[in-house]
Amino acid sequence: MQPISKNLHRRGESWIEKGLAFCAALFVIVIAIITIFIFARGLPILLKVGVADFLFNTDWRPTSNSFGIGTMLVGSLVVTTASLLWAVPLGIMTAIFMAEVAPPRASRWLGALVELLAGIPSVVYGFVGLVLIVPFIRNYLGGNGLSVLAGAIILGIMILPTIINISRDAIRAVPKEYKEGSLALGATHYQSIRRVILPAARSGIITAVVLGMGRAIGETMAVVMVTGNSPIIPAGVLSPVRTMTSNIVLEMGYAAGDHQAALFATGVVLFVFIVILNLVVNMSLKAGAANGRR
């Protein structure tokens, strides 16, 4: 068989292809370097303390060589779960609204506003939380306001764009025939949405929630500004809480030695968690009908 020639260069142009290929290769190189350096700094202490001990021990006293991030792990999970509790339903409803209910113009406008919501920096969200939501909680609900609740409200807003955009695209990607078939059987619009469109878009919506969760776990600045950061397991939604990311940004400024290494180990935990989350999403996307190019 005749192999396909890809030689479509003029003289001197093959080095251009090599240069471009190097640019692409840089992605792989960069992620390799990131992995190596984070792990090199964080893994030794993680192994010394023991992975299970590091993750689940709630005793974080870095000055006396006690490195357990259990409290912060619980903190991250609590704040993230609380934010998902309200942002997921609202996000999916908004996605349905944009894809199925709203007139095209309204949908386009809302789409632009959601983009803007995604573009606002986390430090601004944190600041608004600090000056608006924290005092509100303090005055009307009790406690000092810096709390799981404040974190959940702000984080929820921040992950809304992720949930809305991905779910909306998934809903829009459902073939028209499904809906038409359902309507032709005498189902109402909303019956069709619930029984045909949402099930068909399920894998996309799950992706949206998973990526939203990833974003919430990794978020730092907004959380650190509104949650009070006490290293204790929160007793309720009005209690302060410290997340893994907050712990890193709060203590990196003065940490040294094993203490600093333990913060890197926390980074390793976050990194591994996010990479696994992404790989799972990637694989499930590929498994669920290879539509589109990637």
């Binding site: 068989m1 005749q2 192999p3 396909i4 020639s5 030689n7 479509l8 260069h9 003029r10």
Partner: peptide, 23 residues
């Protein structure tokens, strides 16, 4: 994923050959 067997000639010159300048 395209493969080709056989030959095409342009003025007696084989176009599926290593020497052919595709451009």
């Amino acid at each position: 994923g395209t493969t080709i067997k056989g030959q095409v000639y342009l003025d007696d010159q084989a176009i599926y050959s290593k020497e052919m300048d595709v451009v």
